[in-house]
């Protein structure tokens, strides 16, 4: 397999110290760091629809050893995540090598081979009372009045078991201190989470960050359509600021003090 050969070459030629990919353990494909010392393990390299935030693992490794050269099995979403992590100085592009595999369709790319190629099915009850995974934010806004939008999102948010899976799996969540753990914002140890503030805090922090990989939605045990929510976040950021996170190395408008675009406060309509 070409990918195996390419990864072996990276390791044997000392271009990378560790190569992050997947291998099978007890029947599950899990992330694995392949090294030169055990280069033959690469024969077990698995490439499939399964995804984990390998970039996040790379960030952890780089924090422990900033000089470590890391190879990553990358999809399009990984490339966007890497661009964003470079922008925020979480990873040094000189230390990262990627081997690209085909990936999922997104606003930035239309080809693919990923768990997202087949749209996630939405059940009838969810369609009637909640939010369709595959609805576009613009259609959702156009087809439902404000009371219905609120009740549909509240139906989704109330299922939250506050597992923090969305944050933990997110490749671009790297903050040392997380607002979702701030006792004044989110009361610790209380279930269910106060809605919708928990989800709106996260949605707000995804502005200018979310690279639309959909891992949060995959990880959510309560089936909250998070990707759809953050797509709206991305739409708003792109409509207002013309900024697409991870598209290329460019700072987010929210991290630049001063004007990036001319904005005037919206008038109060009575």
């Amino acid at each position: 397999m070409d990918m195996v050969k390419a990864a072996k070459e990276l390791l044997l030629q000392d271009k990378v110290d560790i190569f992050l990919g997947y291998r099978k353990l007890d029947g599950h494909q899990i992330p694995h760091g392949f090294t030169k010392a055990h280069v033959d393990d690469l024969d077990q390299l698995e490439i499939s629809l399964n995804r984990y935030p390998l970039e996040k693992i790379a960030c952890d490794l780089a924090q422990k050893d900033p000089a470590l050269k890391i190879g990553i099995l990358a999809r399009d979403c990984s490339q966007r995540a890497l661009n964003l992590l470079y922008t925020w100085d979480q990873l040094n592009p000189e230390n990262i090598e990627t081997l690209t595999v085909n990936c999922c369709p997104s606003p930035l790319s239309t080809h693919g081979d990923c768990s997202y190629l087949t749209p996630k099915p939405t059940g009838d009850y969810k369609k009637a009372h909640g939010v369709d995974y595959n609805d576009s934010p613009k259609d959702f806004l156009a087809n439902h009045d404000s009371g219905e939008r609120l009740s549909r999102w509240m139906y989704e948010f109330q299922k939250c078991i506050k597992c923090y899976g969305c944050r933990n799996v997110c490749p671009v969540c790297f903050c040392k201190e997380c607002s979702l753990e701030h006792p004044n914002l989110v009361e610790p140890g209380v279930l269910p989470a106060e809605v919708p503030i928990f989800h709106l805090i996260r949605a707000t922090h995804m502005a200018g960050r979310c690279i639309d990989c959909g891992l949060c939605e995959d990880a959510c045990p309560a089936h909250i359509p998070l990707r759809m929510l953050y797509r709206e976040v991305n739409d708003a950021v792109s409509d207002i600021f013309g900024y697409v996170p991870g598209d290329h190395i460019e700072k987010s408008p929210f991290s630049i003090i001063g004007k990036t675009v001319e904005l005037t406060p919206a008038p109060m309509d009575v």
Partner: peptide, 17 residues
């Protein structure tokens, strides 16, 4: 910075109804 954040949060709140 404030106007940027508020413009965004207004959009988000509208989406939430």
């Amino acid at each position: 910075m404030t106007v940027k954040r508020i413009a965004f949060v207004q959009e988000l709140l509208k989406f939430m109804g």
